[in-house]
Write a protein that binds this DNA or RNA. Structure first.
Lengths: 205, 205
DNA sequence: TTGAAAAATGAACAACGTTCATTTACTTTG
DNA sequence: CAAAGTAAATGAACGTTGTTCATTTTTCAA
């Protein structure tokens, strides 16, 4: 059935078009400006059409969140060239921080906002594949560091989670504007400076 | 003028009553259920009356956020008994994590949600006094640790921020449900286990 | 008692996510 | 080719939300 195939393609195309409009609005204006109506308007379709392709707004935000992880994975590609696991670990954090700084709304969606997780709950999905894959990159690197003699006396998984928390925490505090107004001397460099302290530490342990 | 004083007191009383209703709703049902209407209903006043005492919803949420910091400060009081700064630093993180675990919505409001910061922006307030005071507790403790020979080669402020980020990051990931579904072996203990790794580290550096 | 000032009200507004009866477009069939 | 049937698209309508403000009610000094 050629027509059925074409129909299926058109359906996929429209779904992609909706996501494209949603992504542009999201990146340009942020989450709260990304309404179903504004998405529909931006691609010259009605609100009802959006709901023919997405169960609800959480489904759209989950798709955007998945796109964000694709982008982060792409950013991680430069790490393939770094053979020394310790150097790769250091670079990993740096790339992560750069991603968060360059895409604060997307970062929020990926790691803070409830919408993507609510979508997973709604479809009875236990696993968070995007997060799992990303954590695995870090965890693997930590294990490789340990294999060549670093971090003795530590457990790889909690240590990896600690490192994730450390870097996530900095990004989170910055994005939610908790760094300014706290009497920090150079608030604009505090994340970089704090990360530098972390780098000193992992060379010592 | 006795009547004027009484009027002022009644005004303050009603403001406190609104906050009390808001707090109960916030703690019991979470942020999104804490609507102006539900607050007004819970104390048998109309929506308009709420707006006579608070500029907008952000003002209410900012007041609740301040109450949260009062509670956190109270929780910190047990630390006064801990004389050794290193032990106090370790206990500080523990109390912080316990607070976040016991009051996830309040923690979110204090350290993640935009509302309280938007309120400060709206009244042209540059400083975030609640956050500043809390960070100062940590920063002071870190400086005291350094004064007795720990953390040599580190800068107190970025290091303190790094520690804050580390602990905040763990709480944030847990509250936003980013720990489960990531294939971590004991997700229910990951925060405690990761904090244990941190404790090992600060003893080494 | 009265009238001005203060306090409280709740209907109304715009914007949101969401639904669904209706209309439009397309495909298949006789 | 026309008619019937199916799929796609529509947008008005619903219930909530934060917010406003003309109106009503209450308070209190004169």
């Amino acid at each position: 059935m050629g027509t059925a195939d074409r129909k299926a393609k058109e359906k996929d195309d429209l779904k992609a078009l909706i996501l494209k409009g949603a992504k542009k609005l999201f990146v340009d204006k942020g989450v709260e400006q990304t309404t179903i109506r504004s998405i529909a308007d931006s691609i010259d379709y009605s609100v009802g059409t959006v709901y023919l392709h997405f169960k609800d707004k959480n489904a759209i935000l989950h798709s955007l969140h998945t796109q964000g992880f694709s982008q982060l994975s792409a950013d991680f590609k430069v790490l393939y060239n770094v053979n020394d696991p310790m150097e790769r670990l250091k670079a990993l954090g740096k790339v992560y921080i750069q991603f968060a700084g360059a895409n604060p709304d997307m970062y929020d969606l990926m790691f803070t906002l409830k919408a993507p997780m609510e979508f997973l709950d709604a479809i009875n999905e236990e696993e968070w594949n995007e997060g799992k894959a990303t954590f695995e990159v870090l965890h693997t690197t930590v294990k490789q560091c340990m294999a060549i003699g670093h971090f003795t006396g530590h457990k790889s998984e909690p240590l990896a989670f600690m490192i994730w928390s450390l870097v996530h925490g900095m990004c989170s505090l910055e994005i939610s504007k908790r760094c300014t107004g706290v009497n920090i001397k150079n608030p604009e460099h505090i994340v970089a400076n704090a990360y530098a302290e972390f780098l000193k530490i992992i060379d010592k342990i």
